[in-house]
């Protein structure tokens, strides 16, 4: 009679312990100056991007042909571009485009990577062999090339480009998840969960997959930084966001011809891309240090 009563608290206890561990991780990350600065910057950026369209000083797509290529000043804080559009306004709106696109690519990567990774690790055998081989081949393509090929199939446009980048990055998520599932597949707690009669599917999702989360979160952080760079590169080449809309990358691409007379057009979006990517990478570094215990240096 006591058995069911005893098992019920024990599962909640596990949840509590893991919850406490995650809270601990957040606190440990926030204890590090690099962690707190990156998170503060990213939160600020997300807030600004959300309210961006409402706080722009000028209409970001409004041409003003009498005021083209104005240097930064009191009127236009970051100057105007070759069509007289306010750079700060465009930067604010473009941020939303860049961040959403980056998130879309990483979510696509997770969508295409996690399930096959789980199945490959859990089922094993020929399925595992085929999945990992395909992933290896995808990884041997330069990711930008793969993205370009997929853009060629689907046509230019930011949505297609990010779908492409997501697919190109899926193998990385796949490998992490597969590795972690393989690692815990024969552990006692999995055996115990299965023997208590919990459905296999639930064992995989609720008991095995959570072990992959720390490694996945670290990878997601690095991937966000990398994807932002790839997104801006594709948009720079003209294969991402299409005019008159802008992302940070396309703002640089569109003003390359004017760098000699109007360097501010290139400097501002480039700096924002750099700081954002730096924040994602630093956060990834801090997370990795804290998860693996002990810092690298």
């Amino acid at each position: 009679m006591t058995a069911p009563a005893a098992s019920a608290p024990s599962t909640t206890q596990i949840a509590q312990v893991s919850g406490r561990r995650h809270r601990g991780l957040v606190r440990r990350v926030l204890d590090r100056p690099a962690g707190v600065v990156s998170i503060a910057y990213l939160v600020l950026l997300i807030v600004v991007s959300l309210i961006g369209p409402f706080i722009t000083p000028f209409d970001p797509n409004q041409n003003d042909l009498r005021g083209v290529l104005r240097p930064p000043g009191l009127d236009h804080w970051l100057g105007t571009d070759d069509l007289g559009r306010d750079v700060l306004s465009r930067l604010l709106v473009a941020g939303r485009v860049s961040l959403l696109a980056t998130a879309q690519a990483v979510l696509t990567g997770l969508a295409f990577g996690v399930l096959p990774g789980v199945l490959a690790g859990y089922i094993g055998g020929w399925f595992d062999t085929i999945v990992t081989r395909v992933a290896d081949v995808l990884l041997s393509f330069p990711s930008l090339f793969l993205a370009l090929a997929i853009v060629a199939i689907l046509g230019p446009g930011l949505g297609n480009a990010m779908l492409a980048v997501g697919i190109a990055y899926a193998p990385r998520f796949l490998r992490i998840v597969r590795g972690q599932i393989l690692f815990v597949r024969n552990e006692t707690f999995v055996e115990a969960a299965i023997s208590t009669g919990i459905p296999r599917r639930r064992v995989v999702w609720a008991h095995m997959l959570p072990n992959a989360w720390p490694a996945l979160i670290i990878q997601i952080s690095f991937m966000l930084g990398l994807t932002l760079i790839i997104e801006s590169s594709l948009s720079y080449l003209g294969l991402g966001v299409q005019p008159p809309n802008a992302s940070w990358g396309s703002m640089i691409g569109g003003s390359k011809a004017f760098i000699e007379i109007a360097p501010w057009l290139v400097l501002a979006p480039g700096l924002v891309i750099f700081f954002t990517s730096l924040a994602f990478n630093t956060l990834g570094d801090v997370l990795r240090d804290e998860v693996t215990g002990g810092r690298e240096r």
Binding site: S233, G249, I252, I273, F274, N281, T282
Partner: peptide
């Protein structure tokens, strides 16, 4: 860090 975080096309420009 900068090698990873700086966009190459921007560095080139």
């Amino acid at each position: 860090t900068s090698g990873i975080a700086i966009p190459n096309f921007w560095f080139a420009i």
